[in-house]
Design a protein around this nucleic acid. Sequence first.
DNA 1: GCTTGACTTAGACAAAGTCTATTGTAGGAT
DNA 2: ATCCTACAATAGACTTTGTCTAAGTCAAGC
Lengths: 138, 138
Amino acid sequence: MSDLLERLRGRGWRMTAQRRVVAEVLDGDHIHLTADEVHARAVAKLPEISRATVYNTLGEMVSLGEVLEVSTDRRAKRYDPNAHRPHHHLVCARCGAIRDVHPVGDPLTDLPDSERFGFTISDVEVTYRGTCPTCASA
Amino acid sequence: MSDLLERLRGRGWRMTAQRRVVAEVLDGDHIHLTADEVHARAVAKLPEISRATVYNTLGEMVSLGEVLEVSTDRRAKRYDPNAHRPHHHLVCARCGAIRDVHPVGDPLTDLPDSERFGFTISDVEVTYRGTCPTCASA
DNA sequence: GCTTGACTTAGACAAAGTCTATTGTAGGAT
DNA sequence: ATCCTACAATAGACTTTGTCTAAGTCAAGC
Ligand SMILES: [Mn+2]
Ligand SMILES: [Mn+2]
Ligand SMILES: [Zn+2]
Ligand SMILES: [Zn+2]
């Protein structure tokens, strides 16, 4: 069921009811929830879970490399369980819907040496913005 | 002197000491200051300028299209007077230094139709991350 | 030099996130 | 099975970044 939960087992991770529900809430494709959204969904399964624990648990999952932090807007960070397949994001400017996308080619080759200012570049992050089909037809 | 200030004149923009100082502080190349940094530098020239006025003025400049908001980290928004030459950003992960960069080609062509989920894409934002020469030699 | 609507200000308020002191518990040891 | 203890969970104070409001100030046209 929870692929993320499976990945977290056998890492010496002490299993608690709180950690289990956070992992369950983050299961699925194109999942990019804020900490507060994770908390709201976790409370539905385990009413006494605290906000601090959700933040702590998400932070640990990020440290373990099993969850990614995504910042597609200037509001809250979003947590993404799709940590093992490199990807970028497509965001609807109207409703905020987020899709995982996989551009072809390496965007790094598009940056000429004269535009690198002597930096050693280790990562490129691409965000596509537009209007989703639902918002376009509304 | 202040190219930004020149651009803002003759737009029916009521000129005040506060607005002049904010525009002066934002003059230059590769400028990407936070609102608080703008405020600190503005206070040095005009001690009584308030935080609210800096936020208001930056917001108006953004609305006029003369300043861009840049979000290269999850902390404060940064304000960029280079609003008329499309560009992307190269960020040092260690010290936060930000350079304006101009990749060749259109990153949109790298996203196949099958990866567009029916969206109409209007904008692409690219952030290159790495280590600047100063941090690399330290 | 008036008048007036636009601008500025201080401080309250809000959202997102961090930190701390205290209490609880998972899981190994006995 | 029970005990122990290091690790985890909790409430709430605190911080950072940003917005809002009500009252005072001023640039610019007449
Ligand atoms: Mn994703
Ligand atoms: Mn820039
Ligand atoms: Zn939409
Ligand atoms: Zn650096």
